[in-house]
Amino acid sequence: MPTASATGKATVHRLIGLGLLLVGLTYPFIVYLGMGHLSPRLFALMLGTLWLARALSPRQTPLSRTLSIAALSFCLVLALADSSILLLGYPVLINLALLALFAGSLCSGMPIIERLARLQEPELPPAAVRYTRKVTWVWAGFFSVNAAIATGLALWAPLTWWTLYTGLIAYLLMGLLFAGEWLVRQRVRKAT
C-alpha cells in the first residue's frame, strides 16, 4: 500500500504535468493577450517555474527530461534577453525537442512509436516493427514541418496568424495525423 507521502508526491507530479499541459495548450493565447501588458521576463519566470518543478520530479522519462532541459534553456534565454520575439519561439522549441527525440530514437535503440506499441503488444511481429519505424519517421517529419511553419510565422507574420496556427491549427493537424495513422494501422493489421 502506498504511503501518504508517495501518494502526495504522485499527486503533485500529476498537477505539475497538468499545469504544463494547460500552459502548453493555451500558451499562444496567453502570449497574444499578454504581450502588450507583461514583460517577457515574467513569462519566462512563470513558464520556468513549472518546468523546473517538472525537472525536479523523480519520475523522469527521456521525453520529459529532453523537454525539461529544452524548456528551461529557453526560459533562461528569454529571461536574459527580455525579448518579445523570443516569446513566439516556445512552440518552435517544443517541436524541435520532439523532433530530436523522435529522430534520435530512430538512430539509437527502439523508435518511440515501437515503444508505445509494445505497451499494448509486447511481442510485435517484424512487419509491425517496420511499420512503427515508418510511423516514427512520419512524426519526425511532422515536427520538422511544424517547427518550420511556427518559425516562419514568428518571424514574418502578424501575431494573430502565429496565434491561430500554434494555438489551433497545429493541434488540429496533429489530431488528423494521429487519426489517419490509426486508420492506416487498422488496415495494416487486417492485411496481416
Rank of each mutant, 00 (worst) to 15 (best):
L87A: 04
L88M: 04
L88K: 12
G89E: 01
P91C: 06
P91Q: 05
V92Q: 03
V92N: 04
V92P: 00
L93R: 02
L93I: 13
N95C: 06
L96V: 11
L96R: 10
A97S: 09
A97Q: 02
L99E: 10
A100M: 08
F102T: 01
F102H: 09
A103T: 03
S105P: 13
S105H: 07
S105A: 14
C107S: 10
S108R: 11
S108V: 14
S108H: 10
G109P: 07
G109C: 12
G109N: 10
G109Y: 08
M110Y: 09
P111E: 13
I112K: 00
R115S: 03
R115G: 15
R115A: 08
L116T: 08
L116W: 14
R118L: 13
L119Y: 02
L119K: 04
Q120A: 08
E121F: 05
E121A: 10
E121S: 06
P122D: 14
E123K: 12
L124V: 10
P126I: 14
A127P: 12
A127E: 15
A128R: 12
A128I: 09
A128H: 03
V129E: 14
V129A: 12
R130P: 03
Y131P: 00
T132N: 14
T132W: 13
T132C: 15
T132V: 13
K134S: 14
V135E: 11
T136E: 14
T136G: 10
T136N: 15
W137R: 15
W137G: 12
V138E: 08
V138S: 13
A140P: 13
A140M: 13
A140R: 01
F142H: 05
F143K: 04
V145N: 06
N146F: 02
N146C: 08
A147L: 03
A147F: 08
A148R: 01
I149F: 06
I149Q: 09
A150K: 04
A150H: 01
T151L: 11
T151I: 07
G152R: 11
G152V: 12
G152T: 07
L153N: 06
A154N: 04
A154F: 01
A154G: 02
A154P: 02
W156K: 11
P158R: 09
L159D: 05
W162R: 10
T163N: 05
T166K: 07
T166G: 05
T166V: 02
G167E: 14
G167P: 09
G167W: 00
A170E: 09
